[in-house]
Each structure stands twice: as structure tokens, then as C-alpha cells.
Design a protein around this nucleic acid. Structure first.
Lengths: 219, 219
DNA sequence: GGCCAATGTAAACGATCATTCAGGGGATGC
DNA sequence: GCATCCCCTGAATGATCGTTTACATTGGCC
């Protein structure tokens, strides 16, 4: 009987990462780390695991990254930056109507979290293993995304196009934005591709719900 | 320079667990495990950590629990069972109108996830460290809660009191239910007590948003 | 060919982990 | 006094971890 059991996450329902071409080793390490972190969680994935999945030995990691920590930060930061870019782009390209902005934001956000489930999973779940200085820029990016959404809500309310829920006479748009973001983010935990609803359909469903939640006027 | 760094979660914003009375040791262990798991995560919290927080040594754990795994399952299962009970009770006590049922469900669910943030955090985030047979009954309870909500939505739609969003002519009430649950569950990640909004106000805000999302007829 | 920088291997290092085990009180019942 | 629990301690066990180190192997460039 073994004395120590390494905790193993219940196998996530994620599509296997198919290996196409011989990749540059840094990219291979990143890809292996993504899928391993997503499936089993950062603290229990060993450097040996990651490197074995690339057909290398453990020591080789340190030719490309300073530490296991830095590897995690690298893959999370790149995912997060890409997400922020997508959100900005969606809002900027949706015209002037706050309703179109909100719908475009939610659609883009949801489609991305369906399509890149693994990356979203890791970026959202494993961030807390980074230490303070590493986590700073990622939290900043998250706040930026939230503030984009808050901005759209404020604009829509002031234009009289949104009638957001009020509690005791006050409307707390920050809480509303957080609620919408939680909803859209955690779809990556359970959405299964190839099911009854496509990624684009989920995007439209969530956009519809968001518009209803903030009381968007029709027409 | 130390060779191995134990990963530490960024300190969560959780109220400290105040120690009132000398508790029976099993209860003290449970409470210590809750706060430690919530703050730092199951795999990096050691048995030594938990027991030291109770003023005991590591070996004493095994007089009360078979293993560290069983301790985690114990505290998650009790939290989950309580949550299921609360949801059932809320719906049952809300009368016949599906709108009242939905509002009561969301209010109870949100208030609980604000008030017992720590317990909710652990139950939702650390469940995946359990092995298959341990996780079975918890997944069952989660499905049961989701099905309570789906049931309310179906009833409201058939009664013509809900007009849920349709995508390409079909309405996927299961996805809508998941979206609402995600929203309400993850409030435990960021809600800070003592802020501008009380737990009850958050409950009403979320209930309002849920009613709007499913297109509940007013009046 | 000779040199250099990249990139790999294999072994070692120091530390920490969950769990087990032999034994020590202290209460309770007799 | 004595046996029988329960609950604890403190040390040991066997394993695994992230990282470092010494040393190969490669391929381009002079």
C-alpha cells in the first residue's frame, strides 16, 4: 500500500490535444502544461508530467522557463491578454448603440469561453497559485474587462435604453456586471462541444439573457 | 535558497473564524479544515496545518477520520446536503406561482452563498480532488438542485408565465438553468459582507435578474 | 577543424508529504 | 487496585516534489 496518494482531479471532459507537427519545444511545453493543468490542477501536476508529455526529461524545462511558477504565469497571462483584446474589439466594432455593444461583448466572451474551454479553465482556476507580483497584471486585466462592461451599462442607462434592476431605489451596476461575467465565464466548466447547442448559439442565448437582465428596450 | 516552494493561494478575503468555545475535536477539525481549504486549497493544505490550527498534532487526525480525503468529503457532503435542503424548502414554501418559486429559489440560494461564502467556496472548488465514488453523491445532489430549477422553469413556461429566450426557434431551459446557477454560485467568489449591499439585497437583485432573464410576466 | 550557444540527459539534493505505529496518560467502571 | 477504553504524542516510513548540477550532443559560423 502506498503511503502517499497524489490527489487527482476527476477527469475533465475535454477534447484531447491532438499533436500535429513537431512544434518548437517551448510551444510543446505550453500546450502540454495547458492540458495537464486543466485536467488535474496546477499543484498536483509535476514538472516530470509536463515534460514527459513532450517526450523530454524534467531538467529540460529550465532551459525555457525559470520555474514551474513562471510557466503557469506565462500561459495564463497570454490567455488573459488575448481575452481583453477580444472584449475591447467586440465593443469597439459594434457601433454606438449600447444594446449592440452589450450583445457583441457577451457573444464574443461566451463563444471564446466555449471554444477555448481549456485555456479559460486554467486562467480562471489556477491563477491563485501565482504569487502577488505575478498575479497583479492579471487582476488588472480582469478589472479592465469588468470596467468595459460597466461602461456599457452606464452608457445604456444614461441613454434611457437600459432599465437595470433597482434594489431599494438604487441600481448597483457593478454587481450586475459581475453577475453577467460570472455567468459567461463559468460556461467553460460545463459546455460540451458537439452537443445540441453550438458555440454561436450559446453566445446568442447569453446575449439575449444579458439584454433582458439589464432591461434593454426593444427595437 | 529553498529548493521547493509550496504554492500558496493568494489570501482570500474571508472573515476570520472566531473561536468561541472549546469544541469537540471533530468539530474543531472540521472548522479548521474549512477555513484552511478555502484560503489555500486542498492539495497544499497539509494535515499538519489543519491539526496545528486545532492545537493538536498530525497523528490525531486519524482518530476521527480515515484519511485527509475522507475529511474533505465529509465537509463537502454536509454543506451540499444542507444546500439541497434549503433549495427544496424555498420552492416548497413559495406557493403555486412559478414566479414566486423562482424568486424564492434564487433569493435563498444567493443569500446562502453570500453568508456561507467559505463553505460554498470549498464545496465548489475542491470537489474535484475527491475520487469517483466519493464524488458521486455530490454530483447527484447538484443535478437534483439543477432539476428543481429546471422544473420551475418548465412549469412557468407551460403556464404561459415565462417567456424564456429562444435560439433558432428552440428554448433550451437546461442551459438557462445552468446560466442562472453559475451566476448565483460564483457570487461567493467576490461578495464582501459589510459592503454597500447586504446579503438580502443581493438575493433580491439576483432574483430580479433571474425573473427578467426568463421573461416572467409582471403582475 | 575549432568554437560557441542551445538544448538535452541523468543523477543528486534538500525538503515535505500522508500515513502508520508504539507507547503514554487520563477517565470510567468495577 | 486494575482493566479498558479513548485520545493523544512523537518518531519513523517510504515516497515524491522542484530545482540544481555535471556532463553530453547538436548545428551554425568563423
Amino acid at each position: 500500500m502506498s503511503k502517499r496518494k497524489v490527489p487527482v482531479r476527476a477527469a475533465a471532459v475535454v477534447a484531447p490535444v491532438v499533436e500535429r507537427e513537431p512544434r518548437p519545444p517551448v510551444e510543446a511545453i505550453r500546450a502540454a502544461a495547458f492540458s495537464q493543468f486543466a485536467e488535474r490542477g496546477y499543484p498536483v501536476v509535476t514538472v516530470r508530467d509536463i515534460m514527459k508529455a513532450c517526450g523530454l526529461t524534467q531538467g529540460a524545462l529550465y532551459n525555457h522557463f525559470k520555474s514551474k511558477d513562471e510557466l503557469l504565469h506565462d500561459i495564463i497571462a497570454s490567455t488573459q491578454a488575448e481575452l481583453e483584446r477580444i472584449c475591447l474589439q467586440a465593443v469597439a466594432g459594434a457601433g454606438a448603440d449600447p444594446r449592440a455593444k452589450l450583445a457583441a461583448f457577451v457573444r464574443a466572451y461566451v463563444v471564446r469561453h466555449c471554444r477555448l474551454r481549456i485555456e479559460a479553465l486554467v486562467a480562471n482556476r489556477e491563477i491563485s497559485w501565482l504569487d502577488a507580483e505575478q498575479v497583479g497584471d492579471i487582476r488588472r486585466s480582469r478589472r479592465a474587462i469588468r470596467d468595459i462592461l460597466v461602461g456599457v451599462l452606464v452608457q445604456g442607462k444614461e441613454a434611457g435604453l437600459f432599465d437595470p434592476p433597482q434594489i431599494d431605489g438604487r441600481s448597483d451596476l457593478k454587481s450586475v456586471a459581475m453577475a453577467l461575467l460570472d455567468q459567461c465565464t463559468h460556461i467553460s466548466l460545463w459546455y460540451v462541444p458537439g452537443g445540441r447547442m453550438s458555440e454561436e448559439q450559446m453566445g446568442r442565448l447569453y446575449a439575449d439573457m444579458a439584454l433582458r437582465s439589464v432591461g434593454a428596450k426593444v427595437g
